[in-house]
Write a protein that binds this DNA or RNA. Structure first.
Length: 806
DNA sequence: GGATAGCTGTTACC
DNA sequence: ACCGGTAACAGCTATCC
């Protein structure tokens, strides 16, 4: 039979002694389908002294299916490699035996997992439509496999062809969220579970059942509720199940409670349980049903574009959907809630799933495009960090270069790499503090990728520290690194990525299709991460020499451009890595643009400078100590009156809201008018209010993230004390939490700030001295210093003046 | 016991 | 541990006299 099929999830099983792939997906008629195919697996042997002879010995090893010589490249060099075919589960043992045959040989690609290998070889890529021909598998074939799978159709693959006309695919989504009595995994009962899918909104519960809303379904106990939850999943039969931090909370919690209630929670389409990975970062996999935890993907791919100060469901929803979580009192135990409060609790629980569902829809184009570009299945893809995304992109594109993949570093290598000294990074120009008018900012487009491409910087093109034929040198830290003139695959791929990014960005400009935006964005992220990837200890294509060369070249370029700009009677004020801010002086904007063109005509390769914007005004301040200008701190206003603030306390979440707000207002006043008088009146007013205790405590809460376990802190800072206090109350403390506190007045004179820490709901008055001298004044004094105004003297100084008068 | 250099820790910029 | 280095800054800690 012939069907149109789109793969969603990949699995493999050993039946008899053969490995079979199980590709779960959908047909164009909306049926769930599992395509069965024999798996492919092999690895390579390099450096064999006599490959022909060695093949004979390899073929004697039991379980080796076939060994052949292939002409491949390994790190650009031609190799006569031996390709050894075997079952995936035999591979490590066979590879070890082969290594014993000849100690000079090395194995490669035995660290490519079965799913990736299959996608590479059979080209059945995730989320791409195929026309598939094959036979329906009968119940008595393959150990009754077909019978054990909970899908509409099980087909053994015979022929496959990518559909020329791809069909729009909208997966069926089920979002869910649980509420439990206790925060600690499995400690308390699960009180309710909400589910949201197309036309379905449900809250399942058992603890409180009086007069609930229509969407609430009540059961006699926790066990029945959990069972019904599993039933609903089966009945709704979604393609994807999604939650927010469901890897780390909802599913682990469900597992423990199911075990406690002696329920076998078999949600996998092959009848398997939820599979939890071991290790630090737990993930929860359900075979045949793609589980996506939105939080993980947002962290790696989206957080850099978000303004939100935390990645909580509430803040992310507010920013991306314009909707919030509902509010309830989390401190109450079940028994303490009245009817109204239970109702609120149910709608709170439902709202979480609604938000998760909507966020999923928002991110769907990104999932889809990353899957197409990186060619890895959704489950894996959504959990990858940036390095994995880059690396998998590379692996799935090596074939065009006939390259054998480099191996993943082993434990010792990683340890060694992590100990390497840092290489010198980018150049940052120390600004002269001041208020400047009429500025322009130029920056290099995709600076790191364009340097890597233009100068061919990568592991396979790195030739060492000695001059060689057809090479060029890069000076790094008193040494010279040589790279090949012949373009390597890393640079080639990166160049393609940059070109594709440009293409889809322009297409998106013409037609604002979210898919095009997602595609352009995926390429952009891959390009930007490729520089960091080469310096990352876990990378297959780790090459700190390439990274160090890239930064060395970057410093040269930036400094040279600065020099050229200054020579033309412009005046460079500031520069950080790839951007240069300068005064136009007597030049017009058009002249600056012409100048930009000229600069570009002299740049090599794909390197390019562009106008970031023209600015009406900009302010740079001194460092807190010393009279030098502070780097990475400035504020600009463009000719559309849009303000851009970088580095100032305004944008730092570990300062109290008042300090941030006041500084923000002052920067705005100064940038908009070019004068300080209004700002000075304003700050005097604020200071007066603080002294008269007219400030709401809410404005004075300081929030700092807890980045490691409490016990590991060598230095006990205020937020550690605050966290201890929370712990003493019996409330949960978790790494990554934002700890809120304020600094209070104390009875006795206490020296350390931490001795004055109080939690937001603790009784106590705010410490006037602290908020004045450690929050508000530090946030504004450097700004006034630009106008030669010493704000501290003005605040305290009136007394001094009076003293002086006598 | 106070001053302070240096360290730890967080958060930003690019 | 899960892409890199540069930088500002607070507040603690060790060390000095």
């Amino acid at each position: 039979m012939k069907i149109n099929f789109i793969p969603l999830d990949y699995d493999y099983k050993t039946i008899g002694n053969k490995t079979y792939m199980l590709i779960y997906g959908k047909t164009s008629e909306g049926k769930t389908c599992c395509v069965i195919d024999k798996a492919v697996n092999f690895f390579y042997i390099l450096n064999a002294e006599n490959p022909e002879k060695m093949i004979k010995n390899i073929e004697k090893i039991s379980q080796v299916k076939k060994a052949e010589i292939t002409e491949k490249n390994y790190l650009e060099k031609p190799e006569r490699a031996i390709k050894v075919f075997c079952e995936y589960n035999q591979m490590q043992e066979i590879a070890r035996k082969i290594e014993l045959l000849d100690k000079n040989t090395e194995t490669r690609e035995r660290d490519i997992n079965q799913i990736t290998r299959y996608i590479l070889e059979k080209k059945i890529k995730p989320l791409v439509w195929y026309e598939i021909e094959g036979n329906i598998i009968s119940d008595n074939e393959l150990n009754g496999l077909a019978n054990s799978l909970d899908v509409d159709l099980v087909i053994e693959l015979e022929k496959i062809k990518e559909l020329k006309e791809q069909i729009d695919f909208k997966p069926k989504i089920l979002a869910f969220d649980i509420e439990a009595e206790e925060f600690e995994i499995g400690k308390g009962e699960i009180l309710m579970i909400s589910l949201v899918s197309d036309n379905i909104k449900k809250v399942l519960t058992w603890k409180y059942c009086k007069k609930a809303e229509e969407y609430v379904e009540c059961f006699k106990n926790e066990a029945e509720m959990i069972e019904k939850f599993a039933d609903y999943i089966k009945k709704i039969n979604p393609d994807i199940i999604t939650g927010y931090y469901s890897d780390g909370f909802d599913l682990p919690y469900l597992r423990v409670r199911a075990e406690k209630n002696k329920i076998d929670l078999k949600l996998g389409k092959d009848g398997s349980r939820i599979l939890f990975s071991r290790g630090n970062l737990i993930n929860a996999r359900i075979k045949g049903l793609v589980h996506i935890d939105l939080l993980k993907f947002i962290e790696t791919v989206y957080s850099q574009y978000l303004q939100s100060e935390t990645l909580s469901l509430n803040e992310v929803s507010k920013e991306l959907l314009g909707e919030s979580k509902l509010e309830i009192d989390h401190n109450k135990k079940s028994g303490e809630r009245n009817e109204e409060e239970w109702k609120d609790f149910f709608s709170y629980n439902l709202q979480d799933s609604i938000l998760t569902y909507k966020l999923f829809q928002k991110f769907w184009p990104d999932f889809l495009e990353f899957a197409h570009i990186v060619q890895e299945p959704l489950f894996q893809l959504t959990r990858y960090g940036m390095s994995h995304l880059v690396e998998n992109y590379i692996i799935h594109n090596l074939e065009r270069f006939n390259e054998i993949a480099e191996k993943r570093p082993i434990h010792e290598e990683i340890a060694e790499r992590r100990e390497r000294e840092k290489y010198e990074g980018a150049f940052v120009l120390q600004p002269s503090p001041g208020l400047y008018e009429n500025l322009a900012v130029f920056d290099f487009t995709s600076y790191w990728p364009s340097i890597i491409v233009t100068y061919n910087l990568s592991l396979s093109t790195f030739l060492g520290e000695k001059k060689q034929l057809d090479s060029f040198e890069v000076p790094v830290a008193g040494k010279k690194y040589y790279f090949s003139n012949k373009t390597g695959f890393f640079s080639s791929m990166l160049k393609e990525i940059i070109i594709l990014r440009k293409k889809y960005k322009e297409e998106y400009k013409k037609d604002e299709d979210p898919i095009k935006k997602a595609r352009s964005n995926a390429y952009k992220l891959l390009a930007n991460a490729s520089y960091g990837y080469q310096g990352f200890f876990g990378a297959r294509y780790y090459c700190p020499e390439a990274s160090a060369s890239a930064t060395s070249i970057s410093r040269d370029f930036t400094k040279k451009i600065i020099e050229t700009i200054n020579k033309k009677d412009y005046e460079v004020i500031y520069s950080d890595t790839d951007s240069i801010a300068f005064k136009l002086n007597k030049h017009t904007k058009q002249e600056a643009l012409n100048f930009l063109k000229k600069l570009n005509s002299e740049l090599p390769g794909i390197m390019e400078l562009e106008l970031e914007d023209f600015y009406k005004r900009g302010i740079w301040v001194t460092k807190r100590t010393g009279e030098f200008g502070a780097k990475k701190k400035y504020a600009l206003v463009n000719f559309q009156d849009k303000i851009k603030i970088r580095g100032f306390e305004t944008v730092r979440r570990d300062w109290c809201f008042l300090a941030r707000e006041v500084q923000n207002n002052i920067l705005k006043m100064i940038l908009n008018s070019g004068k300080h008088e209004k700002a000075l009146e304003y700050i005097k007013e604020i200071i007066k209010k603080i002294k008269q205790r007219e400030i709401d405590k809410k404005e004075l809460i300081i929030r700092t993230q807890l980045k490691k376990p409490l016990a590991e802190y060598k230095s006990i800072s205020p937020h550690v004390i605050a966290a201890q206090k929370i712990k003493e109350r019996g409330e949960p403390i978790d790494i990554g939490m934002l700890i809120s506190y304020f600094i209070a007045e104390t009875q006795e004179k206490k020296k350390l700030v931490r001795e004055k820490v109080k939690l937001p709901d603790e009784k106590g008055e705010y410490n006037i001295d602290y908020y004045l001298n450690n929050q508000i004044l530090p946030a504004v004094e450097n700004i006034f210093q630009v106008f030669n105004i010493n704000i501290k003297e003005i605040v305290e100084g009136k007394k001094q003046k009076k003293l002086g008068e006598f």
